[in-house]
Design a protein around this nucleic acid. Structure first.
Length: 554
DNA sequence: GCATTTACTTAGTAAATCGATG
DNA sequence: CATCGATTTACTAAGTAAATGC
């Protein structure tokens, strides 16, 4: 357990043998039935197959907010016109004159029909899907059968970037076998391309973990077919990640002293680096790589913060030296926080912002590469994101210790667990859109609680009466207890749900919290592991569930 | 006991990080 | 140093299962 890296093979080699059946391709486009029409400027118009397919992509999304956005509409229209025949192109010049109504209606009918399928039809469909999974969903890696995470080629459609993405609405093209690179071992059977097709390339690169790849046409980036999270390869990588974070725990005090000392440096780079590290450590900010302007939504992380993203307050809400953050991070999720900082950091920030305007970088001498180089010199394997893992996991461990009691019942223990989990999610700014039916379902639950309370009160008085008349057979006592338990459970549920309105627990659970902390907690608290990890999660964290004793400490 | 609502799971894929490459 | 490639992290939506009400 002391060696950090599991050395399986010589450097960089990920496997010795890899065999699979290639990716699964989405079905071909089925042209619209003859009674479904597209209209331009009020006139019926039969589209070519290529133009029709793209029209359907748009029509399918008509209920979505995307289709009301200017950028989305413009990008879509531009790309759609490229798919048209010259004749179509000369007619169709204005998206506002396009009537997708019938196509949209047809789509909705189809969705409805799928929902209303009989049990048998659903069963048939399920079996067909299972057949696809059986055929394409697994591979042999070093003679072990492993599940593939995403074995399907992404179907064509309209690009749905997050936030104000400049490329939203562009046509994501259909991928052909001729676009796909297959990776497998030399001695493996090469997967058959679909009939009449060939692969772009077959290579045998055992220094990577992917089975197939293609280049996507929106950003020109590469997409990969990779293993499921429960695979040995991914599991070991995950374990390594947490071991590095634990190693940070052992030297984090030194590192903190180092960057606090660096705040006094005469070198601008060093001071900027120190302040950035202070943020990354204290606030669990992401590194913040620079991004190409105009290619993606305007989002930032620590190193790419600009002056308009922070406001300095000498005094705010009774605190001194408060930094107010307001920026869009990964996935255009807003980060808003008011944080009291030490005065040296505050003064440095003021200096960094001198003579700068909105749009200028706060840390103009710093980038993630520089920062990570420095970090790796402090501890092998240390990068900016290790701080997030470390701070997330250590927070969970602390919170669990603080919040949970052995004497609590299971529902209360789980509330404590969720609260600890939530503290981490808040730290990492993992948000979700409040569920559309949140208010309603909250009101429903409250109504049920009230009803139960009433019932309980009634039952209590009845019991009293029964005891008085000495005709109680002892079983209404138990009934009452059950009723009380149920009420408590619902109240706990209500609290939990309310507190969780805008917070997503999944991301931290899956990616930041050392599962051994949770496994040890379950053992200690005598909570079944199934209560905190569902089947998928148990599979992913099988390594931790197997190896962890109740005395594990992160 | 069945239909409907609600909760939970899984799939899908975009968007980050970070080291390698030229 | 900028770009690229591989891998991890992220949220949303669709699908499915469970709970609930009639």
């Amino acid at each position: 357990m002391n060696t950090l890296k599991i050395i399986h093979y010589e450097d960089g080699v990920k496997w010795k043998s890899l065999e699979h059946n290639g990716p699964y391709f989405p079905p071909e486009y089925q042209p619209l039935p003859d009674d479904v029409h597209f209209y331009y400027d009020g006139k019926k118009m039969k589209l070519s197959v290529a133009a029709e397919e793209v029209a359907l992509f748009f029509a399918q999304m008509l209920d979505h907010e995307y289709t009301t956005k200017k950028v989305f509409r413009e990008n879509f229209f531009k790309d759609w016109r490229k798919e048209m025949t010259p004749e179509e192109r000369s007619v169709i010049q204005d998206l506002n004159k396009c009537d997708f109504g019938e196509i949209h209606a047809m789509h909705k009918t189809k969705v409805e029909a799928r929902k209303n399928m009989t049990k048998e039809e659903k069963q048939t469909l399920k079996e067909a899907n299972q057949k696809i999974v059986d055929q394409y969903g697994y591979c042999l890696l070093d003679h072990h059968k492993e599940r593939i995470g995403n074995f399907k080629i992404e179907p064509p459609g309209l690009f749905r970037g997050r936030g104000e993405h400049p490329k939203q609405g562009m046509l994501k093209k259909r991928i052909q076998p001729e676009d796909v690179i297959i990776n497998c071992s030399k001695d493996a059977r090469i997967p058959d391309p679909p009939p009449g097709h060939h692969w772009k390339e077959v290579r045998h690169d055992n220094t990577v973990t992917w089975l197939a790849s293609w280049t996507e046409n929106i950003q020109g980036s590469i997409k990969y077919i990779m293993l499921n999270a429960n695979s040995k390869l991914k599991g070991e990588k995950d374990w390594e990640k947490y071991e590095i974070a634990r190693k940070l725990k052992s030297c984090v005090d030194d590192i903190r002293n180092t960057y606090l000392g660096d705040l006094k440096s005469r070198e601008m780079v060093t001071r900027q680096r120190a302040v950035a590290l202070y943020f990354i450590d204290k606030l669990a900010l992401r590194a913040g790589n620079e991004k190409e302007e105009g290619e993606t939504a305007d989002t930032v992380g620590c190193c790419s913060l600009r002056v308009e993203h922070i406001t300095l307050h000498e005094q705010l809400d009774g605190n001194k030296c408060v930094v107010e953050f307001d920026f869009l991070g990964k996935d255009s999720i807003r980060y808003y926080n008011k944080v009291p900082v030490i005065s040296k950091v505050f003064k440095s920030l003021k200096r960094f912002m001198d003579n700068k305007e909105p749009g200028d970088e706060l840390f103009d001498r710093l980038n993630t590469s520089l920062l990570n180089k420095h970090l790796s010199s402090l501890m092998p394997g240390l990068t900016a994101k290790v701080f997030r893992t470390y701070n997330a996991s250590i927070t969970l461990q602390q919170q669990l210790k603080e919040l949970s009691n052995k004497s609590d019942n299971v529902a209360e223990k789980l509330l404590s667990y969720n609260r600890a989990n939530r503290a981490v999610a808040i730290l990492c700014n993992h948000q979700r859109a409040p569920p559309k039916t949140f208010e309603q379902s909250m009101a429903n639950l409250q109504a049920k609680i009230d009803a139960r309370k009433e019932q309980l009160a009634l039952a209590k008085s009845e019991l009293k009466q029964a005891k008085k008349e000495a005709k109680d057979k002892g079983n209404s006592d138990i009934k009452l207890q059950r009723c009380e338990e149920h009420l408590l459970k619902m109240e706990v549920q209500a609290t939990d749900r309310e507190e969780n309105k805008q917070i997503a627990l999944g991301t931290s659970k899956l990616n930041y919290l050392d599962p051994r902390i949770s496994v040890a907690w379950c053992k200690n608290m005598e909570v079944p592991i199934e209560k905190i990890y569902n089947k998928t999660q148990r599979e992913k964290f099988a390594w931790a569930i197997d190896m962890t004793e109740d005395d594990f400490e992160f």
